[in-house]
Each structure stands twice: as structure tokens, then as C-alpha cells.
């Protein structure tokens, strides 16, 4: 099987919609196929990685610890959009996992080099 470059674009906040959780599940399944996977977090999607999520009050499963398991699944290319972070006053210290912060120009290049792009 040839390796393709897969990119998951995450643009929704967690819990308000099901997109974030669905994306995470697809990413974990994709990991079994040994592809070149990148995750991009932009717009409200950067909130998926916010530290300190406590979901007891809304009676929803807190899936944020699972982002820390991605490394064990050999998914290590996590990118966040700098402008989305700034608009939300977030810094890398606010995030659960190590990420690479990219400018819009860098993101454009990253998008262009992909074989498959999946949007959530």
C-alpha cells in the first residue's frame, strides 16, 4: 500500500457539536493504516486542545485526554493556526499537547501538499 498524505481540518469547538469527537475517532481509526497523517486545528477547533476541560456538569464524556494518546498512535503532526489562537487569546501553554503554530502562509503550503483533506 502506498502512503498518502492525509490531513484532518478541525474547525469546531468541542461539545457544542459532535464534529470534534467524530474527527478524533476517524483519526484513531486512520492510524491503523499507517498513512502520513496531519491534524490542523483552526478557528474554534483550537478550543478542542484547551487544557482544563471538566465535563461532569454537562454529563458529557471528556474526550480531551485522548489527544494526548495520539503520540502513541504515531500521530505527531499537530498544527494550529496562529491567527485563530490570537483571536481567542490562547497560547501554546493553554494547550494539552505539543503543537506547531503556523502562519496562514505556512498553512496554505501545508494544505497544498496533501493527497486527501477531510474537514470536520
Amino acid at each position: 500500500m502506498t502512503t498518502k498524505k492525509f490531513m484532518f481540518v478541525n474547525r469546531k469547538a468541542p461539545y457544542g457539536t459532535v464534529y470534534a469527537l467524530e474527527s478524533l475517532e476517524v483519526v484513531l481509526i486512520t492510524a491503523a493504516f499507517d498513512q502520513d497523517v496531519s491534524l490542523v486545528f483552526m478557528d474554534d477547533g483550537v478550543y478542542q486542545l484547551k487544557k482544563g476541560q471538566q465535563t461532569k456538569g454537562i454529563e458529557h464524556k471528556n474526550f480531551s485526554p485522548t489527544y494526548r494518546a495520539l503520540e502513541g498512535y504515531d500521530i505527531e503532526k499537530l498544527y494550529v493556526d496562529r491567527e485563530s489562537m490570537t483571536a481567542r487569546s490562547l497560547t501554546e501553554d493553554d494547550l494539552l499537547v505539543p503543537v506547531t503554530v503556523l502562519s496562514r502562509d505556512q498553512l496554505t503550503s501545508l494544505f497544498e501538499e496533501q493527497d486527501v483533506v477531510l474537514s470536520f
Binding site: L28, A31, A32, K61, N62, F63, P65, T66, R68, A69, G72, Y73
Partner: peptide, 15 residues
């Protein structure tokens, strides 16, 4: 407890 998922075999083996 730590990651809130049951790991895939490959991941479990490595861990």
C-alpha cells in the same frame, strides 16, 4: 483512566 480510550493492539503492545 489516562487517555479515555481503549488502545489499539499495536498501541497497547508498544505501551
Amino acid at each position: 483512566d489516562e487517555y479515555q480510550i481503549a488502545p489499539a493492539v499495536r498501541v497497547l503492545t508498544k505501551a
